[in-house]
Design a protein around this nucleic acid. Structure first.
Lengths: 195, 195
DNA sequence: CGCTGAAGCTAATGGGATTAGCTTTAAAGC
DNA sequence: GCTTTAAAGCTAATCCCATTAGCTTCAGCG
């Protein structure tokens, strides 16, 4: 039994591949062990059980995803930046459905590494939104709306939630254009009492 | 062993309760069997394994959810109808997180009963959208946008995806208002080749 | 009052996760 | 170069869940 050169990173990478190929719900220690040619309990030397493996995948993919969004926004602003980010967002979810699914478990606030990783993507959207010049309190709502729209669309699309044969490609473009228009005439916050 | 009076409906109801209380991912035949006071294999007389149970839950909840949306829209139109449906949508997802999660697996098109059940909710949104008088091809995009926005928001909210302490209640209201404005000035479809 | 089918049961199998504790390897130190 | 040692691997055992097979009992009907 020669050393297999495993690290949390190697396992997470293999796990991400499994998630993309077979679905995030089919990700298991058994599947990873088989792929890397090792007995299941050996994995415990590198990750803290399935839960630890899932977290590892989530953290790495969050960074990967966030970087892509950031790169898409780079050198663009306003509408163009938003369109590019939206495209990159959907592209990632479509080409990496398992990884995208892995991102859907929010990290505990205590887990600073994971929280930071997840924030990379949010930050990209925050920075795009800054270009629209909304006051801070409105910007929070706008970012939430943006995230909701993009996430909702790609998830419904991935799950086969859009039954009709009409192009989802097209619908997504329209969604993004509608968003851009909405941001130009963003609803004013009613003065609010509290948190 | 007196008869327990089980039916698929009884099991699905209990399963829905478990899903809401402990999370849809913790739903198991073992949990249901314990709750209804029966041995696990006995459940097979009523449902086709876990997968069958999940489907049963999904079908019932899809109807329940759809009816609530429909009732919310009833007697209202345009903006008011959309606001009411949006409120009912989020309310359901918040009070029944497990049931809402159960709805996220689209039924196979062959499964007509399930497809019909799922369409009840979509139909409510379709009918609301009709009030906005969009041409049919645009309406499809608009409905997809509406569904994306609502689903995305409630899911991100449920998963703790909105980190900041600012009121999600408020953000949701703004999202809905933005949506209403977007529908008044809906992006024209570029002429499209296909698909 | 017995028949029969459905509804329950137990037993057995298989898969995944996890823990405990043993063995081997690779690398650091002498 | 040899020894030591900690990490990396292994096997064995346990637990939980799902599923199948096949037996038993109950309820209703002739």
């Amino acid at each position: 039994m020669p050393r297999a050169g495993l690290t949390p990173a190697v396992l997470a990478e293999e796990a991400a591949r499994i998630a993309d190929e077979e679905g995030f719900d089919r990700l298991s220690l058994a599947a990873v062990a088989k792929r890397v040619g090792v007995a299941v309990p050996s994995l415990y030397k590198h990750v803290r059980g399935v839960e630890g493996l899932r977290r590892e995948v989530a953290v790495r993919c969050a960074r990967e995803f966030g970087e892509r969004l950031g790169r898409a926004a780079m050198g663009r602003s306003h509408d163009d930046a938003l369109r590019a980010v939206a495209t990159a967002y959907r592209e990632y979810a479509r080409t990496h459905p398992g990884r995208y699914a892995a991102l859907q478990r929010a990290p505990s606030p205590q887990d600073e590494e994971a929280s930071a990783a997840f924030y990379v993507g949010v930050e990209a959207m925050v920075s795009v939104m800054r270009g629209f010049g909304l006051p801070d309190s409105d910007a929070i709502d706008a970012i939430r709306a943006l995230r909701s729209a993009l996430h909702g669309f790609v998830e419904l699309e991935a799950r086969g939630g859009f039954g009709l044969p009409q192009s989802t490609e097209h619908s997504y473009r329209i969604l993004v254009e509608a968003l851009i228009r909405a941001l130009r005439d963003w609803p004013r916050s009613a003065p609010e009492a509290g948190g």
